[in-house]
Design a protein around this nucleic acid. Structure first.
Lengths: 236, 236
DNA sequence: TTTGACGCTTGATAATTATCAAGCCTTCGG
DNA sequence: CCGAAGGCTTGATAATTATCAAGCGTCAAA
């Protein structure tokens, strides 16, 4: 059912910070034990509570990490190429805390968790790379939590739009990177309220046309959104 | 101003998972460069945004980790003996994402971040222990985030009380581990609403007398709270 | 002991957010 | 091209949560 990973995929993965420093032999050993599979959209790759059998790497497409409780569901993050997910569960040999589903047609690499743990024990540079990666992940979640606890939904949306605009560099506008319903869930609100929140940002120069967003005067929106590097910057 | 750490404190710190596996020489090197200081209550130990100069270890007392934005403030976690905080910022040599203040009179060990990073680079066992620690921290934050996004404030309180009761083992009740106002902030609500939420749990057998909580029929409260190991268990 | 500070509670009210119910629009398969 | 499905929007309403204002209780400093 799964296919072995073709060697043509090795370089992309090797470029990831997580794998770039490890010994060649160990990297090859991980790759040779790995699989690659193309999934259609909306396929549930992992289910929260299940043991983490594989470290996943998104090669193309995109994957939604989400959680459920008591009939409710919320989107936690979207993973885009090229990056890994469920590293923490893999390392701790613990059950996944989040489920994952493909948002679009996606190629996913699956590295058996046992192999990852074995190489983690054997390769000191890999262990250190995992430290950096996990520290980064941890800080990223802390930022999201600050966003959730300190801001209203309107403020969260405003800051989200500013972050996206920043990514789009000099461009005059940008397209939302996923469906509005998913954005709503990610921001901790309902689709109905996201729709209203967009209208609420019109006075600050935000225009929405389908999936296209334009921010008339970035400075104007910033005066409302008050972005902070300790919440909104990727790097710090 | 700071005092060198007395050797009598070494064993307690050495017992922490983070330090238990590392080479003796490296441990001693960390300890000899470390300071210990007793702080009165309500002292701000670190401020978010500042560089992380020290890895902190709470020896006695307790420390509140909190965040601010736009004049608002929220409590993120309480650190109790014996454990460390701001490990991630220390390792990444990045600014602290959270502030910290003593809740009571507390003895804090301060290990220079430079030393921690140096030993991290030199000691492979220490590096691996950090991986385990960070993975644990990461998963813990994810659980908190699920709690926040999937549950109402009443449900969060109910589950918090059940977790505390579990810690109190067979006891018939327990005392809240900190002020109600801080609990409110931690749970993402106002003190006023926490007060009302306690009343809202009376029908499920929760009695509050000052700081003392008793849960009449744990099963009854669980039927309402629906605790999940993927949100509420420390271990998984 | 007194007094003030401060945390907790309660009530009234307002703001925020969710839910329900249509209706609109795009998309995609027939 | 048509029609159904599903995402998006809008309005009305309800639930949740926050704010404001006051009073109560406790604790510690004077």
């Amino acid at each position: 059912m799964h296919k072995e990973m073709p060697e043509s995929d090795y370089p992309d993965i090797r470029e990831l910070h997580l794998f770039s420093d490890m010994a060649h032999d160990n990297f090859m050993s991980l790759m040779r034990g790995a699989y690659v599979q193309a999934f259609p959209p909306q396929i549930e790759l992992i289910t929260e509570g299940d043991p983490s059998d594989f470290l996943h790497v998104v090669l193309t497409g995109s994957v939604d990490l989400f959680c459920s409780w008591n009939g409710r569901e919320t989107s936690m993050a979207t993973v885009r190429p090229i990056s890994t997910f469920i590293l923490a569960a893999t390392i701790r040999d613990a059950p996944n805390l989040m489920s994952a589903r493909t948002l679009e047609k996606s190629r996913i690499a699956l590295i058996p968790s046992q192999d990852v743990r074995a190489v983690f024990n054997a390769d000191n540079d890999f262990a250190r790379a995992i430290v950096t990666e996990l520290a980064q992940c941890y800080r990223s979640v802390i930022k999201t939590q600050k966003d959730l606890k300190l801001r209203t939904s309107l403020e969260r949306l405003a800051n989200f739009l500013l972050r996206q605009q920043k990514r789009a560099a000099g461009d005059t506008g940008f397209d939302l990177p996923f469906e509005k319903r998913r954005l709503a869930s990610f921001l901790g609100m309902t689709p109905e309220n996201l729709s209203r929140a967009f209208k609420g940002l019109q006075p600050y120069g935000v225009t929405v046309t389908g999936t296209r967003i334009t921010i008339e005067d970035q400075h104007d929106l910033e005066k409302f959104a008050k972005p902070s590097p300790l919440i909104d910057d990727d790097s710090t």
